[in-house]
């Protein structure tokens, strides 16, 4: 168990370093950086590399935003395997939903509870 915590720390940290490099080194805006990471997660899953990474690093691979692209692609691929090409369309959100639905739900709850501050968040 302790080893999986260490691996999660290192792998998750490294993915964030890649993000920081895209921001600082290649001067991308945060939105571009996030989109790039999501796309790379999706492509990695296309090559079947992201699932082994999850098996290896656990939360180190599922918590960064790259896993978002992975799970979208993974849902699409799984459906495509069952139903052919049409599954690509229908399967996409099959696996991903929790992150997005949580964000929507908690976003609305936050809008209820919290007041706007002078600082931007």
């Amino acid at each position: 168990m302790i080893s999986s915590l260490v691996v999660a720390f290192v792998v998750g940290g490294l993915i964030c370093v890649v993000g920081q490099f895209l921001m600082d080194g290649l001067k991308l805006t945060p939105a571009h950086t996030m989109s790039t990471l999501v796309v790379s997660g999706s492509i990695l899953d296309g090559f079947g590399l992201y699932e082994p990474l999850i098996a290896f690093a656990g939360a180190g691979a599922t918590v960064p935003i790259t896993s978002f692209g992975n799970s979208l692609t993974h849902g699409a691929l799984e459906e495509a395997e069952k139903h052919g090409l049409i599954g690509v369309l229908t399967g996409m959100f099959e696996v991903t939903s929790s992150g997005i639905s949580a964000a929507i739900l908690f976003g609305i709850i936050a809008a209820f509870i919290f007041q706007k501050r002078n600082t931007t968040y």
């Binding site: 940290g13 920081q20 996030m34 918590v63 896993s67 992150g99 964000a103 929507i104 936050a110």
Partner: peptide, 27 residues
Amino acid sequence: GAGSAVPITGFGNSVVSAAIEHKTEGY
């Protein structure tokens, strides 16, 4: 920097902050 933006918490933060930010314009 990216250390807090890349994890899913950063995604949540951007959604939640936008929601709070535009609360005054109605739900």
